[in-house]
Amino acid sequence: MDDAAIVALFWARSEDAIREAEKRYGSYCAAIAGRILSDAEDTRECLNDLWLAAWRSIPPQRPENLRCYLGKLIRNLAISLRRRTHRQKRGGGETDLVLEELGECVSGGTEPEQVLEAQVLCEALDRWLAALPLRDRQLFVNRYFYVRSVPELAETAGTSRANVNSTLYRLRKKLRVYLEKEGLV
C-alpha cells in the first residue's frame, strides 16, 4: 500500500492506517529510535507513542512523504523520551557522540535572548545544507539526523572511517562559521 493510500486511511479514521504504516515503516522508525535511545524497551515505548502521535496528527496533517513525516516524528519523540528518562548508555551511546560532536558548532550560551525559535534555526540549516555538495550533505544528515554510526556510514559510503570522520569534522567547522555569520550562535 502506498503513502497516499495509508494517509487516506488515517483521514478515514481506519485503524488499518496504523497497521499499514507500521508494516511499511515500522523497521525504519525503529532504527531511528533505536539509535537515539540505545534501549530496546524505550524503543518499543517510543514506537507506541509514534503511532498514537501519527493518529492524532493525521488529520489535520496530510503528509506528502509519509516516510519522512514519520521519521521526523519518531526522532522528536525519541529525543523527548531520552531527555525525560535521562538515560545514559554505559560506555557512551551514539547520541552522546553526536551531541558531543555538534557541541563544536555552538557556543553553549544560555541567555534567554539567545534561545532561538526552532523554526528560524531549522530554516537556516536548510539553507546551509542546500549549499553543500550532495555527498557532504548525505553524510551530515545521516550522522546528525539519523544518528548513524561512523563505521556504518563508512561501510555504506564505501570509504574509510577516517575519511568519514574528517569529512564530518570539516562540515562541523563549516557549520560553526555559518551559524556565527548568521548570528545564530
Binding site: V106, L125, F145
Partner: peptide
C-alpha cells in the same frame, strides 16, 4: 545556543534531505 537546540532543530530539516541521505 545549546547543542540540544541544534540537535532538535535538525529534526525539522527539509524532507528532501532525508530522502537524499538514505
Amino acid at each position: 545556543m545549546k547543542v540540544q537546540a541544534l540537535f532538535d532543530a535538525l529534526g525539522g530539516i527539509d524532507d528532501r534531505f532525508l530522502a537524499e541521505a538514505e
